[in-house]
Amino acid sequence: MMNICFATDDNYVKTTAIAIMTVLLTNKDEEISFYILSQSLTETNKEILKSTVLRYSSKSHIQFCILTSSIIDKFSSTIKKENHVSLATYIRLFIPILLPNNVHKILYLDGDIICTDSLRPLYETDLKDCSLVAAHDERTCDSESFQRLKYPMENGYFGAGVLLINVDYWRKNNIQQKTLDFVFKNKEICVWHDQDALNKILNGTVKFCHIKYNVYEHFYENENNYPALFNNEIKEAIENPVIIHFCSGRKPWTFESRCPFTGTWLKLYKQLFGKKCRLTHRYKGKTKFLWSIKRILHKLGIKKYEEFEYSKGYSGLRKQIEERYFKDKK
């Protein structure tokens, strides 16, 4: 059995349902216990997640872990309102107290992912003497991050969207409280929210996995942006991804998305919900207006803009991945 957890709210339920759907479609032989962390969810939205699990697996089940602690009210003040990050992002810090005591390890996944292959090899990674397993983030090559957070660069910097967590270690070492305390006392330092705090508190105790388990969508947009240190690993990851992470503001449900797997996500949405997804704009006001003008100029060939140049060359990989999702339509 595998334990997998998501953090969500009422605004992100459909996205989380698609993530769960892809996990089940690419891990068909697994018995999975899904744990949904949230501050609150409507019964309708709980039913969406329950029915998704039931539709795609007869062996798996789902449990809701609702956080009602007053600390959430205090903690919510640290969120920068101009950022696309929601309160649900921080709820993963409460994993030690929200999960049942008999859960000793958990695979935490952000809701804006699609799973494209088996998670079993990652889940079986040895957690002895480490706090978690995660993939390197681009900032692991950026000295600024380590100067800001004040810990050794050789300890690395991980992305917090995919975490195989040693729950026993977190409980024993009070990681929840240590991380919360760091966020409360260092709001300006935590540019990347609790991801920064987790990297600071857990540095030196983290085991790094292959980047294929957390492939950022922009790796498919511009190969020149690869961190040199991980150039070869990233190339391997984009050719054989296990988890594709839509971690930028250009989500697949926005007009501005440039990822070659946006169409795949939209197909998954239609299959799960029986209708097309209504796209929204990432940009608002003046920025949205200027973006629209630039888009028109680009389409007419009057002036070319890089932001409208979409990724090419991944049609074979996209077809291969979609075959895992759609060959046995339900």
Rank of each mutant, 00 (worst) to 15 (best):
Y269T: 14
Y226N: 10
P241T: 06
V215E: 01
N232S: 12
E239V: 13
P227C: 01
E223L: 07
W253N: 11
T254L: 08
V215P: 02
L266V: 08
L266K: 15
W253S: 12
G263C: 15
W253Y: 09
K212G: 06
I211R: 12
E233Q: 07
E217L: 04
F255T: 04
R258M: 09
F246S: 06
K270M: 12
N214W: 01
I211P: 01
C209R: 02
I234T: 05
T254D: 12
K270P: 08
E239D: 11
K235A: 11
G263R: 08
T254R: 06
E236L: 02
T264R: 02
N225Y: 14
C247V: 05
W253D: 09
H218M: 07
W253E: 06
P241N: 06
K270I: 03
F219N: 00
P260R: 04
Y213W: 07
C247E: 07
W253G: 14
N232I: 08
R258N: 14
E223Q: 08
F246H: 03
N224G: 14
Y216R: 04
L229S: 09
K267N: 06
G249V: 09
Y216S: 04
Y216I: 10
A228V: 05
E223V: 14
N232G: 09
N224T: 13
S257P: 15
V242G: 02
L229N: 10
K251H: 07
E239F: 11
C209E: 03
N231C: 10
E236Y: 02
Y226D: 08
K235C: 06
Y226I: 15
T254A: 14
N222V: 14
P241H: 13
P241S: 07
N222E: 13
L229Y: 10
I238P: 15
A237W: 00
P227N: 01
E233N: 03
E223S: 13
Y220H: 07
Q271V: 11
V215T: 03
H210G: 01
G263N: 11
V242N: 01
A228L: 08
R250I: 15
E217C: 13
F255W: 05
R250K: 04
I238R: 04
Y216E: 10
N240S: 13
N231V: 06
Y226K: 12
V242R: 01
V242D: 02
K235P: 05
R258L: 13
P241K: 07
H210V: 00
T264M: 11
H210W: 01
K235I: 07
F230T: 00
P260S: 05
Y226Q: 10
R258H: 05
I244A: 01
N231M: 14
N225L: 05
R258D: 05
K235F: 12
E221D: 11
N231F: 08
A237M: 03
W253V: 13
H218P: 08
F219H: 02
S248I: 08
C259A: 06
Y269M: 09
R250V: 09
N225W: 06
E221F: 10
Y213V: 00
G263L: 14
R250Q: 09
N232E: 14
N222R: 15
W265D: 02
E236W: 01
F230L: 12
